[in-house]
Design a protein around this nucleic acid. Structure first.
Lengths: 198, 198
DNA sequence: AACAAGCGGAAGAACATCTTCCGGTTGTCG
DNA sequence: CGACAACCGGAAGATGTTCTTCCGCTTGTT
C-alpha cells in the first residue's frame, strides 16, 4: 500500500524543510515564487528540490494539502470544545494564524484554477468547506449570526482580510489580521436591533 | 505655465484610452501587467503607449494620481452632504466602487514603494488620507464608531476587503465588495452594550 | 567497507517583456 | 485644398528571468 520506497533520513528532512520554506515564501510572495529561492530558503540546492518535487504543481499541491489538513484538524477539535457562536468565533480567529489565513489567501487564486483537476485537493477543499459551513450553520441556528452570509462566502471574506500586505513586516500583518477579524466578527453578530437590511 | 505643448486631437484621445485601459488592467492583474496588453486593450500600438508614457512608472503614477483625485473629490462632496457616522458610512461605501477600492488595493504595494520618491504622489496620498481621517474623527467624536481603529488603519482594511478575486468575474467582485463593506461597517459601529474588549 | 541514494549548483534552454525605430497615415492650419 | 508636422502601428532585436537537466562528489545504510 505504501508506495513511498522509504526515503533516506537526510532526504526526508530536506523534504520537510522544502515544504516549510515553500509554505512561507508562498505566503509572502505568492505561488509563483522562483523555485531557486525556495531551495535557498530551505538551505538545499535546486537539484534537491526538483528531485523531491518534479514540478511546481506537485510542490504547491503538497503545501496546500498540508494546509487543509491543519485547518480541518483545528475545525474538528474546536467543534468539540465549543459550538454555536462561540465556536465560530474561535474558528475564525484561528484563521488569523498566518499558516492558515495568509497562506490560504495567497493560494486562493491558484486553488481556484487547479483544484478541479486534482482529486486529492478537491476532496480536501470540500471537507474543509463542509467543516466550516457546519460551524456557520450552528451559529446561525442559534440566532447569533446574520444569515445573509454563507460559509463559502465567509471563507472568501476571511481570505481577503488575512491577505498579506507585502509592504508591512510579517508581525504587523499578523497583528492587523487579528484586529480586522475582530471587527468582522462584530459585524457578523446579529444584533437585537434592526436586523433587516435593504 | 502649461508645459504641455497641446496634443493633437487623436493623440489626446489615445492618451485617455490608455489611462483607462491601464487602470482597468492594473485593477484586475496588478501594476506589472505587460505594456503590450495595455496598449492592445486601449486599441493602440505599443509605440503609442511608449510615446505618451516613457516608462511604466510614469503610466502607473498617472493612473494613481487620477484615482486619488477622484477619491478626494468624493470625500469633499460627501463631507458637505453628511457628516459624522452617516458621512463615514457613505464614504466607505464609495470605496466599494471598483475605480476606487479595487484599484487602490491593486496599487497599494506599488504605492508603498514609490510614493516617497514622487512629490506629487505623496502630496495626493496625504490629502486623501487627511480627508478620510477627518471623516473617521467626526464619526468617532460623535461616539458612533469604535475608537481602536485609525483612519490609515481603516483605509488598509478597506483595501484588503475590496481587493479583486481574479478567479471571480468582475461583477461578482463588485457585489462581494459591497456586501463585505456592509459587514465591516456594522463591525465598526460602537454598540451601546459591551464596548470594552480584552 | 562498499554501494546505493542523495546532494549542489553551473549551464544552457526556454520564455516573457521591454524598448526602439521607421515607413506609412492623419489631423491641422494657412 | 494642400503641405507638413505630428502621430501611429507593430516587427524585431535586446534584455532579463526562471526552468530544468546533468554529473562529479558526498553521505547514510547495511
Amino acid at each position: 500500500m505504501d508506495t513511498t520506497p522509504r526515503l533516506r533520513a537526510d532526504a526526508r528532512r530536506n523534504r520537510e524543510r522544502l515544504l516549510a520554506a515553500a509554505a512561507e515564501l508562498i505566503t509572502e510572495r505568492g505561488p509563483d515564487v522562483p523555485m531557486e529561492e525556495i531551495a535557498q530558503h530551505a538551505g538545499v540546492g535546486v537539484g534537491t528540490l526538483y528531485r523531491r518535487f518534479p514540478d511546481r504543481h506537485t510542490l504547491v499541491r503538497d503545501v496546500a494539502a498540508e494546509m487543509f489538513r491543519r485547518g480541518i484538524a483545528i475545525a474538528e477539535s474546536e467543534e468539540e470544545a465549543a459550538s454555536g457562536w462561540e465556536g465560530l468565533v474561535r474558528l475564525v480567529h484561528y484563521c488569523g494564524e498566518p499558516e492558515l489565513g495568509a497562506l490560504s489567501a495567497a493560494l486562493r487564486p491558484w486553488l481556484a484554477e487547479h483544484r478541479d483537476r486534482d482529486p486529492e485537493l478537491s476532496g480536501l477543499t470540500k471537507t474543509w468547506l463542509a467543516r466550516f459551513e457546519a460551524a456557520v450553520r450552528l451559529a446561525q441556528d442559534e440566532g447569533a449570526m446574520r444569515t445573509d452570509v454563507t460559509g463559502a462566502d465567509l471563507l472568501r471574506f476571511i481570505s481577503l482580510v488575512t491577505c498579506r500586505m507585502p509592504e508591512l513586516p510579517a508581525a504587523a500583518n499578523h497583528e492587523a489580521s487579528a484586529r480586522y477579524l475582530g471587527i468582522v466578527i462584530d459585524g457578523l453578530r446579529r444584533r437585537p436591533l434592526s436586523e433587516a437590511r435593504p
